[in-house]
Design a binder for these strands. Structure first.
Length: 756
DNA sequence: GTAGGGTTAG
């Protein structure tokens, strides 16, 4: 009886179609006799066990039942789904003697939650009848995976749409960042429910269109806590704490969400005192608010305070641990981060992402990738963020093979290449030196935002493919995508790499008028680089002197680079002096300057430079190179003797050296071009880390495939010449990523055009 | 027992 009442109650607030279903059910229930009440109790027992994760007890109860109704079966199925036991759920569904519509719907929603869209659609098509819940579930499935066309098709075909269907379509657009489509849909209809007004507003907030969000907020017929909180959060997270405070005061209802939004807003805007004051004033605190406060302390590097709060909180949850792990890692204390990770009672995917990103950011990339493998062993499933994190770690150390495997798993997991993860994938291929695959990834993006375009454009520019970069820019303009300052840096450096001086100059002068991008420091630096590279040193210098900013180290660096190439020692000297003033510890600049002296035969000055470095205690960053072969990263330093294959490598280098001499290659040893790596003896030039890595690559990478080497510093000139020559002799493509850009060596030439 | 909006951690 109780069950019946509940059914009637739910149906009264649900749709017509639902009501029909329940009427049918009531009919069925009438045929039951006195034991109906008992069955209901059994069913409730099953649900309760399932809710608290006692799957076996639920199962025993289910099997012991003298008589089962479809509700019993459904309770088992949904219980399994709740506990992510998808296989067991499906088995139950298959074993059911008589399925009702709810069983179908529950199973369908199970597939959707499991992101098995193909299976969901198959089941959906097989359904003997569908109600509005079935249609809405399918819609939400497509929406969650970003398949907007399919979602729209389902929506259009839904026979008796209710408010949830409409809201589902609206949310599909909003959550996938298609705010204009959402707006269009929203304006096509007037009787939206509060939920949808809130969703539309949240959509604008997400796009940082606070004025539009506020307009929705002002226009909506009635507001609830969610409306107020969304608006307050919008202001708080976009740095407008004043407006947030104003609304907070005005708000008729303040719940935990409101208070937490304020605390976290203060934290994000670096207003620690205000954050703490609000935190202390909160009528009740949840774990979320504690965590926000802890985050505040970690951001201000007050790890002691963070730890104090963490120790004091009684409602500590996994997020609290995760916040602390990130805090320690970002403050450089990876050991404490790791021990917290080890100590914590329960880890989730975010804990893994936090510790992995921590290792990666502290420079332990290999340990980071190692943890991915451990994570898989631990049974933790990859999600969007672990995927993103894995990809950016691969990008850092240019672990292309590993990155490709992650890509494969990403596809297999059925993730749509939305902006966040898609851009990480794109960046991974760019930074791993595989520009073709980067372009494939770019084309495969389901949604391109400005970051995607900029990444692709910069990718081409850094690889020395200036013309391709400019093609991307043309495409952007064709699609009416408004470039920003980053885009223009890409465009100018592309022009520079392609030697398109006039076109670059034109862009530089028209960017404010044409694209509304204010010229900044970086743009000037690009222009100086562009002119300098083309040998127009006076113009470059004049531009620098006329620019409305104080030149910084990067600006002088561009001039220094140009002076080196074109042998203008005097200008180079001045540039170097200025850089030393600004960045006394920049060892790369000392090296660049001593190269400049060496190039013009001023050996005394070379020696003096070395002395200065010694006096000032400037430490050279040790140079090393690495290469990934068969999923393993091999690292080399100058004159490396640690690698197990060293004898083969050195023998092969010797052989290459002989052949190079025949080709007319002259070792640059006399020039003392120890660009980046200090060596005791000049013959060590032969064994610079990049050469070792290249030799190892030729020996181990199958012919026909490019050899990809990464170096932490700038490649030295001798190595650059040698690798050009090696690419010709060995008939291999060698792609070298150094600290500033990519070099594609092929048939004795380099994509950088010998200027970098 | 099935479908919808707002707060923290990456």
């Amino acid at each position: 009886m109780r069950n019946r009442l509940r059914l009637v109650h739910t149906s009264s607030i649900r749709s017509c179609a639902c009501k029909n279903l329940n009427v049918k059910k009531e009919g069925k229930m009438k045929t039951f006799s006195i034991t109906d009440g008992e069955v209901v109790k059994w069913n409730m027992g099953i649900s309760e066990h399932m809710r608290s994760g006692r799957l076996e007890s639920a199962r025993r109860l289910f099997e012991a039942m003298p008589r089962r109704t479809s509700v019993s079966w459904n309770a088992m199925i949904s219980g399994y789904l709740m506990n992510e036991r998808f296989g067991d759920a499906r088995q139950m569904f298959d074993a059911m003697p008589e399925r009702d519509l709810v069983s179908w719907n529950i199973t369908l929603s199970g597939y959707v939650k499991n992101r098995k869209l193909g299976d969901a659609r198959k089941l959906f098509d097989e359904m003997p009848e569908k109600d509005v819940v079935s249609w809405n579930t399918m819609l939400s499935g497509y929406s969650q995976s970003g398949f907007l066309d399919e979602a729209r098709e389902i929506f259009d075909r839904t026979p008796r749409k209710n408010s949830i269907s409409w809201n589902g379509m609206l949310a599909a657009y909003v959550q996938n960042g298609r705010i204009e489509l959402a707006r269009k849909l929203f304006e096509s209809k007037f009787d939206w429910e509060k939920v949808s007004w809130n969703a539309m507003m949240a959509g604008y907030v997400r796009k940082q269109r606070l004025v539009d969000a506020r307009m929705v907020f002002n226009r909506m017929p009635e507001r609830d806590e969610v409306s107020w909180n969304t608006m307050i959060t919008g202001y708080a997270q976009n740095g407008n704490m004043l407006e947030a405070q104003k609304l907070f005061q005005e708000s008729p209802i303040r719940d935990v969400f409101t208070w937490t939004a304020m605390v976290s807003g203060y934290v994000q805007n670096g207003m620690l005192v205000e954050a703490r004051k609000t935190f202390d004033e909160m009528p009740q605190k949840t774990a979320v608010s504690w965590n926000a406060m802890i985050k505040g302390y970690t951001l201000c590097k007050k790890m002691d305070m963070a730890k104090e709060l963490f120790d004091a909180m009684s409602c500590r949850n996994t997020s609290s641990w995760n916040t602390m792990i990130t805090g320690y890692a970002q403050n450089g204390d990876i050991d404490r981060a790791r021990s917290m990770f080890n100590e914590m009672p329960q880890r989730d995917s975010i804990s893994w992402a936090a510790i992995i990103a921590g290792y990666a950011q502290c420079g332990y990339s290999e340990e980071a990738l190692h943890l991915f493998i451990e994570m898989k062993r631990d049974g933790e499933r990859m999600n969007r963020s672990t995927f993103t994190c894995a990809l950016s770690t691969c990008a850092d150390i240019a672990a292309l093979e590993f990155g490709k495997q992650v890509h494969g798993r990403l596809v297999k997991a059925g993730y749509e290449m939305g902006c966040y993860v898609g851009n990480a994938l794109l960046a991974m291929y760019c930074k791993c030196g595989s520009i073709e695959e980067a372009y494939d990834a770019f084309e495969g993006l389901s949604e391109k935002d400005l970051v995607s375009w900029n990444t692709m454009l910069m990718g081409y520019a850094k690889h020395g493919f200036g013309r391709e970069a400019l093609k991307v820019f043309d495409l952007m303009r064709m699609k009416n995508i408004k470039p920003d300052d980053v885009t223009m840096v890409g465009v100018l450096s592309a022009c520079s790499h392609a030697g398109l001086v006039d076109r670059g100059t034109e862009y530089f002068h028209s960017m404010e008028r044409e694209y509304g991008v204010i010229v900044n420091h970086q743009h000037y630096t690009c222009m100086i680089d562009l002119l300098g590279r083309a040998g127009r040193l006076e113009e470059a210098e004049a531009l620098m002197r006329s620019m409305p900013f104080e030149p910084d180290a990067a600006t002088w660096g561009a001039l220094l680079g140009a002076s080196r190439i074109h042998g203008n020692t005097k200008l180079g000297e001045e540039a170097a002096e200025r850089i030393f003033e600004m960045e006394p510890d920049n060892s790369g600049m000392y090296v660049l300057l001593s190269n400049l002296y060496a190039a013009s035969g001023r050996w005394g000055d070379v020696k003096r430079m070395r002395g200065t470095m010694w006096d000032k205690g400037v430490k050279k960053v040790p140079g090393y190179s690495w290469i990934e072969v068969k999923n393993k990263v091999h690292t080399f330093s100058v004159g490396d003797s640690a690698h197990p294959d060293k004898e083969r490598i050195y023998a092969f280098l010797e052989e290459l050296d002989q052949r190079m001499k025949k080709e007319g290659y002259v070792s640059a040893t006399k020039m003392v071009l120890h660009d980046v790596e200090e060596e005791e003896k000049e013959h060590m030039l032969k064994y610079h880390s990049e050469k070792l890595a290249v030799a190892f690559g030729i020996l181990n990478v199958p012919p026909g495939r490019p050899i990809r080497v990464i170096k932490n510093l700038r490649v030295c000139e001798d190595c650059h010449n040698a690798i050009k020559c090696i690419s010709k002799i060995a008939g291999r493509t060698i792609i070298l990523r150094d600290s500033t850009r990519f070099h594609h060596f092929n048939r004795g030439l380099c994509s950088c055009g010998d200027y970098w």
